[in-house]
Nucleic acid binder design. Structure first.
Lengths: 302, 302
DNA sequence: CTAATAGTGTCTCTAAGACAGTATTCA
DNA sequence: TGAATACTGTCTTAGAGACACTATTAG
């Protein structure tokens, strides 16, 4: 910033002003980051001929302290004065998963004034995506109680209500998280209200069983974003190992979108985003398939 | 939140814990909201037969205090302890433009640790869109020095650099803001670096003339978002008056996208998002055109 | 009549949905 | 051989780009 020679109403120049600026005069909220770390894994499979099903997984940490003691929460923590939001997010990510070089993006800043029973906390959520094999430094090494939860996301109701000047669109989303025998669940109501020219989206937790804070909202939001973004970006490849078959890739799309895709159309669509390799699978009780790798934008023709 | 009977390592229940929780033990950043309020207006036009050109406008406030005294900044302010982020944003919006019922969405939380020379400030930016006529309660009533600036946005360079494991995509964006004779300008470098599986986007201000803080980045980001979102949502209609011609609507799309569109294709594309009215324009030195209105989703067939 | 905008018709090309059909492996 | 996945060919439909063409007004 260039030196500003102007003087304010107190006759101070900018350096003088900054010299005596007292930052402690106002009460301030705490700021945290919360990480949504997603992977995809194979489910167990009994029939040796069938392909294993894929499942979306999310990392949660069991709370060892109040509030929400004993419940499960997103990994996260307070942002310190000397680090940026991104840095705080990477620090959290690293401390929970021991990995660093993964895709990460900021999602949303959650600012309801009563989000946290302790004090006013504003939380910025980030989503990270990684191939599960790259994280076999399994979460739980340092965090005593970290676990991967298999996520099932389903829209169980859609409702449209007319109001005086517009309409409300309401969606009930139920999520079930499984880890072994344990099950967590939550239902979130997403309301888009349109009133004249005002459009507002609101999320409320209808029911949450075992999920701390307002984290069920964050999970719902992140999955919605992921579903959206997988359609128009290459984000899905961050969930894949270096080599994969097209069927596996398709399964990942299917598990995130929550619907089946037609193989022919899928292959056409991703054709110029993948590159064939010489290798192929050999294991299973059926025709082997070629292994592909991601073809980054810079290898494609402009 | 339901009562939690568990006791933590100090033997406290959750209510007991909250009772003695001391929120003041950590140093905390300040949090602000910054508003990007956009409208579209007609430029002056000498030839009575020609249609007036449209221009995108942004509201800025002249800083009356350090830091950046005398420069122009986005309207915004500190988030108080008792209001949510959204509430803070609406409050700011209302206090600057005297309007309330307009479209608003959260954009991004800016968290570099040295963004503000006074102290650590995290800022959450919001974008608001409104029809200019609804805001003829012109900004400046209470804010001494508020003004609408005509925004020109242009990508002046695109560069691709190969690195060891990936590539960097760099974009130089120049923005010029005009208000009467005054001109503000800024150049922002947007770098998308892809390294292995890590993708990161970084924005740096190369040059800023008269624009305070890192607000040039926020403006660049908002316009990029607007450009993107106008393609797949109905967001543009928030910038239109209740009745408009299709040519006007097309102009708004053109001014935001920064390129010309073909009328035939444009009309096809928006055909089921607008509804014809009985009225039409009568003024100009050429064929009059029908006036349309926005047809909200709930009037369309599902 | 002219300059301007308003609005339509139609050819082409591309991408996606649908689905039938062929190919290849392992036990 | 049969059960499974891997992969291809092609018909159809929807939408966008391109562009030529017609329509209508004020002056």
């Amino acid at each position: 910033m260039t030196e500003n020679p102007l003087r304010d109403q107190n006759g101070l120049t900018e350096p003088e002003f900054l010299q005596i600026y007292d930052a402690s005069q106002y009460e301030r909220p705490s700021v945290t980051v919360d990480m949504l770390i997603f992977t995809v894994t194979n489910k167990e499979q009994n029939n040796y001929r069938k392909l294993p099903e894929k499942a979306l997984q999310l990392l949660l940490i069991k709370r060892g302290e109040h509030p929400y003691l004993g419940q499960w929460a997103l990994p996260g923590g307070f942002v310190s004065m000397r680090e940026s939001l991104d840095e705080a997010a990477r620090r959290e990510l690293h401390s929970e998963t021991n990995i660093d070089n993964v895709y990460m993006e900021q999602l949303f800043a959650w600012g309801e004034s009563n989000r946290d029973p302790r004090t006013r906390v504003i939380s910025c959520s980030y989503m990270a995506l990684a191939d599960r094999t790259s994280m076999d430094v399994r979460a739980g090494d340092d965090a005593a109680d970290a676990a991967w939860w298999e996520v099932a996301y389903s829209i169980i109701q859609e409702k449209r209500t007319m109001t005086e000047q517009g309409c409300d669109l309401e969606r009930l989303v139920t999520m079930e998280l499984r880890h072994g025998e344990e099950v967590l669940s939550a239902t979130v109501r997403v309301t888009e209200s349109m009133n004249g020219s005002v459009t507002q989206v609101r999320r409320e937790i209808i029911e949450a069983d075992g999920i701390a804070f307002d984290h069920a909202k964050m999970i719902e939001y992140a999955i919605e974003r992921l579903r959206n973004k997988i359609e128009y970006t290459d984000i899905a490849f961050h969930l894949m190992p270096p080599l994969f078959t097209l069927s596996e890739l398709q399964q990942v799309y299917e598990v995130i979108l929550g619907k089946e895709l037609l193989a022919a159309a899928f292959r056409r669509k991703i054709a110029d985003v993948v590159a064939e390799t010489n290798e192929s699978t050999k294991d299973a009780g059926h025709r082997p398939s070629k292994l592909y790798r991601y073809k980054p934008r810079w290898e494609r023709t402009w």
